[in-house]
Nucleic acid binder design. Structure first.
Lengths: 348, 348
DNA sequence: GCAAAAAACTGTAACGTTACAGTGATTTTT
DNA sequence: AAAAATCACTGTAACGTTACAGTTTTTTGC
């Protein structure tokens, strides 16, 4: 007891965290040598390296992050920038999970940087740039001309976007192929005999608004269907408003007989509106929906669903920032996830 | 262009981040004086402080985190430790949101530290302790005898738990009153004429398993109802298994006529099972469910629901760790959230 | 009027790390 | 055998901050 509690006056306290100094003391080497040995530098002898590594492992040495960061500027931090008003159903959980799985095998920590309600989306990015508080950034809710992307490119800060831009500049991204999803959705609806189709798209400022519109219009043309307008409704419209409007839509002389939705939670409000008018899902109307968690088919098996694998998105995003930090060219870090149709829904 | 790009050889580069040195140079004071002025130390003159603050604001000075951390050990980091297999419906999103709202007003960053599938839950806590990588920790999925709590108490690391322990030691926590919720749930079921009641509780290792059991048994006694056993089902059971078993339960000679559920996502699987047997919600069976996002009533208005405000939980948790870091006594940092019954469900 | 105390400010060192410019040995080249 | 090159290792300084021990000037006490 007494012995274990005693501290050495020079160099190596018993219970404190080991540093390079501790290893240097134990191996009889200089601090610099130890540092370079652990980095596998070419000017250190092979046997010395082995010895240093052994002692380091023994002591459970972990480099002090503050020391490294102060000296080199490397933070070993990936920042996830989240719009606070993100989707209801598990989007954040899953993306965080996916990112963490990848970062778990590295020295990187994940710092979550949400930015408050609809304020200036540049704020968190500027903060990270000004304070140098991350080595890489992941952003979502991408716009075609995204000023955050522009700024980070200018300042040379590695990043990935969850979604594509349309600025004629290459940068890493992961995106779900919403165009293909909507196209295939309309195709399936038409195969079931639906002709008057409505689209619940995201807010027009986001890139994937356009993607889904393009897929929609291409499919309308290809499969001879017509659009029933959703008016100003988007996937961000409050649920009760969606419900009211959906009901109104169904009471029109020419109501839609097919709906394509880009949001799982919005879909439950649409359904509530439809069923309030007495129309039956799968009989009078068919709905196709994209969700980030498998839950719609538990509620209404008649819904055709695609489940976007957000956890996988998180993994890809994390891998991409890390690769970008390691200097991999942006062009090689662009991935598009294809829609996978659920087997839980009605038999095709 | 040329002018702006030029660097000063001494002291103050034009475009780099300002440091204490920059402010010292500009004010003509010593670095120490500037540091102490910004800390509002008593041995600095009032006018000097004012002048330093002005220049600091002007320059947009932000203390270098690595410098502070290296010197003082203060990380300005709150770690959120997440079990990776957390709930489906937005739990993580909301707790992160709540925490961020509080940390947003401070110097603290939020680091999310998930620990991989069902491995040793001590790993992340030990990592934080060994590397000193956070000033405070938030953990959830609390057990009555939680070794993480024991360890952090021993080592003097400030933390809050999302859930209570039963170890006879005071520590900060935020918890939802699951006992009251289940008690009131049974009460409501009995008021609707239900007598044979089943409880879908969490896994028995978690603290709130016992809380819900206690509330349940107290209510059964008080309101003369009987339990229909759920067997080994818990809120963590996979949804398809829940569905199968729920169906089996409803085909018993004496099926339950009331169910109390502690999980929103599990509830949709229970309902699927019930309805597969032809029983009708609100007619043959009533369900009471606790959810972390308002969605069940959109699906089946007949469900009686309580929505646990996880965002609020996040806020309380964050406030509590911060207070604990500031030395506020643990006893003053214990909050219990009361159930609030939804107005969306059936009229009472 | 002079010592003591208070007020206002400052220099040095250290936290742990790494870039850089060495320093001795030993080996190779000529 | 002397010069050059290679190898293996090391000391110093600096990143930005703050604790601590001063120092200088002004004010107070008697």
């Amino acid at each position: 007891m007494d012995d274990e509690d005693r501290r050495f006056s020079r160099g190596t306290p018993a219970t404190e965290r080991p540093t390079l100094k501790t290893i240097a003391y134990m191996t009889g080497l200089g601090i610099t040598t130890v540092s370079r040995a652990l980095k596998d530098a070419p000017d250190i002898g092979a046997d010395t390296k082995e010895r240093v590594r052994l002692v380091a492992r023994q002591l459970g040495y972990q480099p002090n992050r503050a020391g490294v960061r102060l000296r080199t500027g490397k933070t070993n931090v990936i920042a996830l920038v989240l719009g606070i008003e993100q989707e209801l159903m598990g989007f954040t959980s899953q993306i965080v999970q996916g990112i963490s799985e990848v970062l778990g095998g590295t020295q990187y920590h994940l710092v979550v940087t949400p930015h408050s309600f609809e304020k200036d989306p540049m704020v968190p990015v500027r903060y990270i740039l000004d304070t140098g508080s991350a080595d890489g950034v992941i952003i979502s809710r991408i716009e075609p001309e995204d000023p955050r992307v522009k700024l980070m490119l200018e300042r040379g800060l590695p990043f990935v976007t969850h979604g594509r831009t349309d600025m004629g500049i290459a940068h890493p991204y992961y995106d779900f192929d919403n165009e293909a999803y909507v196209y295939q959705a309309v195709e399936r609806l038409v195969k079931r005999g639906r002709r008057r189709i409505a689209l619940l798209a995201p807010q027009s400022r986001f890139s994937y608004h356009l993607h889904s519109r393009v897929g929609f219009e291409r499919a309308l043309a290809d499969f001879q269907a017509t659009e029933v307008s959703m008016g100003r409704l988007t996937t961000e419209t409050p649920l009760d408003e969606l419900r009211t409007h959906s009901e109104r839509l169904c009471r029109l002389p020419e109501p839609p007989d097919g709906i394509v939705s880009l949001s799982g939670s919005s879909t439950i409000a649409l359904i509530a509106g439809i069923e309030a008018t007495g129309l039956r899902l799968g009989v009078d109307v068919d709905i196709v929906a994209k969700q980030s968690a498998e839950f719609l088919n538990w509620i209404r098996p008649e819904i055709l669903t695609v489940t976007e694998d957000v956890r996988h998105a998180g993994q890809e995003l994390a891998k991409a920032v890390l690769a970008r930090i390691d200097g991999v060219s942006a062009e090689l870090l662009q991935t598009i996830g294809k829609p996978v149709w659920s087997r839980m829904g009605p038999k095709d």
